[in-house]
Amino acid sequence: MRRAAAVLLAGAAAATGCGGSPPAPRTATITVLAAASLTEAFDDLVPAAHARYSFAGSQQLVAQVTAGAPADVVATADAGSMAQLVQAGLVDPPRDFARNRLAIAVEPGNPRRVQGLADLARPDLKVVLADPSVPAGRYARQILDRAGVTVRPISLELDVKAVAAKVAAGEADAAIVYATDVGRAGSVAIPDDANVVATYPVAVVKATTHRAEAQAFVDRLLGPAGRAVLAARGFLAP
């Protein structure tokens, strides 16, 4: 929760602290809880000055909404997390807005010569995965099971951005993350027969006090603007 709180604070500071340079929108600023892998795409779509973002692992988003976090829109990286919110009657009917594949992130230039999934079992390679409690970790486990590869990770991080960060910082040699999270690091593709395609649903939170603005955000995400931004960040169409 500590990190989520920090993000909320940072988001609030960004929303209130920018000295007028983009004129403040007349509409209310909405709060969007979104899967960590959506960080860049959502910032592209609606700048943080006009929406408060809190990015975290999808399971954490479920916990936050369930605990009554003041949110207007929630977007998760898997159908299962969203289904928990639907079952609890906390959100409107969700709609899928993007899909994502997974990939192997390696250091720039791939100095350890990672060729594919089988290499992740190499004892000389430091591999980081997401914890199976978040979608990225569950997908990574499915992929490795399908490929019949046994990996001994050095850490199971609690959201996918933390996984990608370990490779970016040079503390790990390889990681399984979303294709959109590879970022500055290099990437090695995972073959289609082993890969998993993640579906991203979005929904308006029933307890929202800004229903019109929340619906407008969802519409923008599902419309041409959202498609373009998501495609530019490497997401697949729903």
Binding site: P153, I154, S155, L156, E157, K166
Partner: peptide, 10 residues
Amino acid sequence: FAGSLPGRTR
């Protein structure tokens, strides 16, 4: 600094 691996650093 140490990550989060059950049995080792969690």
